[in-house]
Simulated assay, not measured.
Amino acid sequence: MRFSREELASANGRTLADVIAPDLAVLFCGINPGLLSAASGFHFARPGNRFWPALHRAGFTPRQLAPSDQEELLDLGFGITNVVDRATAGAAELRAEEYRTGGQALRAKVREYRPRWLAVVGIGAYRVAFDAPKAVMGRQEAVLGETGVWVLPNPSGLNALWTTPRLIDAFRAFRLVTGVPDASCAPLSDNDAS
């Protein structure tokens, strides 16, 4: 996916459709769409973002999905949404009020779709959106109805604090808590083997 500077700039402020269905095992929640995601229509589309590799290497998916494969997540019991719908060049452009409003919308979405787990990828976004300034990574005390809440590290390549191995370990630890079987060990179908 290659977009001109003008095409990316025109994606500023756009929204990105959720990948969502009722009763998912996990609804993954990003901070907000980046410009490349908004321009392409695919979540976590920036090449340096480690969401898709971490998801696979932690055992959530049988192969590493590309952003354009995002709808395949639904068949595996997973979905994607964002705390803030508005696309920006970086999360630093978001205002605290947008996080709070997004947190309210996210709560309503969880009530409607009833995933077993909500996994927010970004501690800063979670702290503001859920008014939990002392929250730490991992399982949260707060639950949303019957939905457990977990905070994972932000998979952005700009998040140097979390190396790729540490990020994968965090995703794997979460998968183990959810009871989701290790899909990375699933046998390949004839289509995957070629």
Rank of each mutant, 00 (worst) to 15 (best):
A160T: 14
A96Y: 01
S40N: 10
L106Y: 02
A87P: 04
A160G: 09
E141L: 03
P47D: 07
S194Q: 12
C29Q: 01
W150L: 01
S4L: 06
F51S: 06
G79D: 06
L24A: 14
P33W: 09
E112I: 11
Q104L: 11
R166Q: 07
A39C: 09
A186Q: 15
L176N: 12
R166F: 06
N159K: 13
L65Y: 05
F44P: 01
L27S: 04
S40K: 00
G122K: 02
S40D: 07
G157Q: 15
G179D: 11
W150Y: 03
T101S: 15
R14Q: 14
E98F: 04
R172P: 00
P67Y: 06
R86T: 10
K109G: 11
P187H: 11
A119S: 13
L73R: 05
I31S: 02
S10Q: 13
L73T: 02
H56D: 08
A66G: 05
V121R: 01
A9F: 05
F130G: 03
W162R: 00
G30S: 10
D18S: 09
L24C: 13
E93F: 04
A129G: 07
K134A: 07
P47N: 14
A160P: 01
A45D: 14
F3E: 02
G103F: 01
I168M: 13
G30E: 04
L188A: 12
G145A: 12
R111Y: 14
F78T: 07
A39L: 08
S40Q: 06
L167H: 02
L118Y: 00
G79W: 02
L8W: 05
A170W: 00
I31C: 02
N12Q: 07
G145T: 10
P67K: 11
Y99F: 13
M1N: 03
S4V: 12
E112N: 14
G102F: 02
R46T: 13
V177W: 03
A11Q: 05
A160I: 14
V121P: 06
I123G: 10
G145M: 08
A186F: 13
V19G: 01
D169E: 14
F130L: 04
I123F: 08
T147R: 00
P47Y: 08
E6D: 14
L176I: 14
R63Q: 13
Q70K: 10
E71C: 08
A54R: 01
A45M: 08
S184P: 07
A87Q: 06
D85A: 14
P133I: 00
R100C: 05
G102T: 07
A193I: 13
T101R: 09
A193G: 10
V151E: 01
A39D: 06
G13L: 11
A135C: 09
P187C: 10
T15M: 14
L188E: 15
F78L: 15
A186R: 12
V83P: 02
A21T: 12
R14C: 14
D131T: 00
P115G: 05
L16I: 12
R111F: 15
G122I: 06
N191R: 15
A25N: 03
R127A: 07
A17M: 13
A45N: 15
V19N: 00
R166E: 10
V26F: 01
P181S: 09
W52T: 05
F3V: 07
G79Y: 04
A135D: 03
L167F: 02
L158F: 07
V177M: 01
P62Y: 10
V110I: 09
E93L: 05
L65P: 04
D18A: 10
Q70G: 06
I31Q: 00
L16Y: 08
F42S: 05
A186N: 09
